[in-house]
């Protein structure tokens, strides 16, 4: 029953996010702050992980195609497909569920514990709009982060390929350009937008409706990470089935 209650409460929160909007002059500042916290603040970790995971994908692909009949350029092809279709949009989103999600839950949860949300509500402010909507708008720039992840993943693969001696630069680039289907990029960005919505709203839900003290803020962050990841994985399956099969 709790699950059904939470799902219902989540959708009511999403509806309330668009009601009684905060004054634009105030909202503008909140959006810019959230872009800084959630998007710009994530560039470092996303770049680091993308580059090295791209490298690892390349090494593992190269080591698993030792058959001389398989052309070397397939390493680049496999890296591109893995990075664009799954690694950048999905794997990075799971990482972001940990980084951005726990930040959102703990910051909103702390506001709940310290009565700052009550203070907003007493003033007649729609606290859900004030707190969640700027995060939702900020995370609409999330595809930009994923574009960088795609680029750096393929670049990391190239570096690993060349410095590891698995194939030549020409072979890798040929593979990366082989049978490129532009719709795969569209598919990846559709997924990314959906995941951005989940990343903004699910952690906010667990922060906003948490009860208790500091210990519960920690528990809410963990729960938010788990359910954000579950939602991302399930939606990934559904979107892939709908768009690619």
């Amino acid at each position: 029953m709790t699950y059904f209650h939470n799902i219902g409460a989540y959708f009511i929160m999403v509806k309330d996010m668009f009601r009684k909007p905060t004054k634009w002059s105030v909202m503008k500042g909140l959006i810019l702050k959230d872009i800084d916290d959630l998007i710009i603040g994530s560039f470092g970790i996303v770049a680091f992980i993308s580059f090295f995971v791209g490298g690892v994908v390349t090494i593992q692909t190269a080591l698993n195609i030792s058959n001389p009949l398989i052309p070397k350029y397939l390493v680049g092809f496999a890296t591109r497909q893995s990075v664009i279709l799954e690694f950048a949009p999905t794997f990075i989103s799971i990482i972001m569920a940990g980084k951005v999600g726990s930040f959102i839950t703990s910051s909103i949860g702390t506001m709940r514990v310290t009565e700052q949300i009550d203070a907003l509500e007493v003033m007649g402010i729609n606290a859900i709009n004030y707190l969640v909507f700027p995060k939702f708008i900020a995370l609409m720039l999330y595809p930009f982060v994923i574009s960088i992840a795609m680029f750096l993943g393929i670049l990391g693969g190239m570096a690993a390929c060349i410095y590891g001696g698995f194939s030549t630069l020409e072979d890798y680039v040929t593979g990366v350009q082989l049978d490129f289907i532009p719709f795969h990029i569209t598919y990846a960005f559709i997924k990314t937008i959906v995941f951005a919505f989940v990343l903004a709203t699910v952690p906010s839900f667990y922060g906003f409706f948490m009860k208790g003290g500091a210990l519960e803020v920690g528990k809410a962050s963990t729960t938010a990470f788990v359910w954000t990841s579950v939602a991302i994985i399930l939606l990934n399956y559904i979107i892939t089935q709908l768009l690619l099969s």
Partner: peptide, 24 residues
């Protein structure tokens, strides 16, 4: 109604037990 409630709330000042200042 919601607007009238909002109007009354905008005339309320509240001092919370823990002050509830916005820490950002």
């Amino acid at each position: 109604n919601a607007d009238e409630k909002r109007n009354i709330r905008s005339k309320i000042g509240m001092v919370f037990q823990g002050s509830a200042l916005f820490d950002s």
